[in-house]
């Protein structure tokens, strides 16, 4: 076999291999989705590529689980409020740091960047949270994450490259820094701010360790931790399944678990096709600047 023929064989094998890896990445998500809309009794005897006996019974039953609606509300609230605050505050901090007349700006910037490599550890963090009276409050999900050093680097780098003319003419017209930030720097930085918002949104939605460490109050339970508890104790269902007996379609603990999993993963699955290009851009930027 000559070289180019051998390369063709390699190319084909490569595509097949990559297809299989891609399939292994995607199929589990597809599987839980089709399982959650299948008749649990039929699905339990095995499904592959298509749902069997379409039903919405799983979703209807999941709605009856105690506190699930509240946990969803907490998860959405922390995602929306946390993300908004992170974006606005980090952008404002970054904007201030780009101005040479600000005293000690290098010192502040370096201190923040170095903090990425410093971790006091679990107990010291726990004591701080306790001292600040943040334990068992909703704010424990928000305040510690307001400034994320990595985002600060990204945003500051981006803002430094913005054209200065617009800002200067605004200053000449007597606008202050806050106005210029709000009306010029912030809107012009939208591409990087969107990236950061998506990063942080996913982060907030997926967070549960802070819930486990600092918020034992059941009112603050997030969807993520609730799912973990349901799987680990296998208590998804006893009560909800009983209440479901009157229906012709019977749900199973597994079908309910998968349905909740779909509920938790769906928001990310839905936004992912739109945000993956931001991620790729973001990491490229990080790779170049880092």
């Amino acid at each position: 076999m000559n070289y180019s023929k051998r390369y063709k064989v390699f190319e084909l094998a490569n595509v097949v291999l990559l297809f299989l890896i891609g399939f292994a990445s995607l199929y589990p998500f597809y599987y839980i989705i089709i399982y959650s809309i299948s008749d649990p009794m039929q699905a339990s005897s095995g499904i592959g590529l298509w749902p069997k006996g379409f039903t919405s019974q799983n979703y209807q039953t999941v709605l009856k689980i105690d506190n699930l609606a509240h946990a969803t509300f907490i998860s959405i609230a922390r995602t929306v409020i946390g993300t908004l605050l992170t974006v606005v505050c980090t952008a404002m901090f970054a904007y201030g740091l780009t101005k040479p007349i600000l005293p000690m700006r290098k010192f502040m910037y370096r201190t923040v960047v170095i903090s990425m490599y410093i971790s006091a550890g679990l107990i010291p963090a726990y004591l701080l949270i306790t001292e600040l009276q943040l334990k068992n409050t909703f704010l424990v999900y928000i305040i510690p994450m307001i400034i994320v050093p990595f985002y600060l680097i990204l945003i500051k780098t981006y803002m430094e490259d913005l054209p200065a003319e617009m800002e200067e003419s605004a200053f000449v017209e007597g606008a202050g820094y806050f106005t210029v930030f709000r009306k010029i720097a912030f809107p012009l930085s939208m591409p990087i701010l969107a990236t950061v918002a998506i990063f942080q949104g996913v982060n907030q939605w997926n967070s549960w360790v802070d819930n486990l460490y600092y918020a034992t109050d059941s009112n603050l339970m997030t969807l993520q931790l609730m799912l973990l508890n349901l799987i680990q104790t296998q208590s998804v269902s006893a009560s909800v399944i009983d209440s479901n007996l009157v229906n012709t379609i019977k749900v199973t603990p597994l079908s309910l678990q998968m349905t909740i999993t779909v509920v938790v993963v769906l928001p990310i699955l839905l936004v992912y096709p739109y945000f993956q290009r931001f991620f790729i851009k973001g990491i490229m930027l990080g790779a170049v600047k880092g």
Binding site: C89, I101, M108, I118, A120, I123, L127, L128, I147, Y177
Partner: peptide, 30 residues
């Protein structure tokens, strides 16, 4: 007067980072 707004934009957040990243270091004493 010019620097004041810039300080208002940065110092509180700087202190926030110091609080959550550097202050807990004293906890090593435990």
């Amino acid at each position: 007067k010019r620097v004041l707004p810039l300080l208002a934009m940065t110092v509180p957040f700087f202190l926030l980072v110091v609080t959550f990243s550097y202050v807990p270091l004293w906890g090593w004493y435990i």
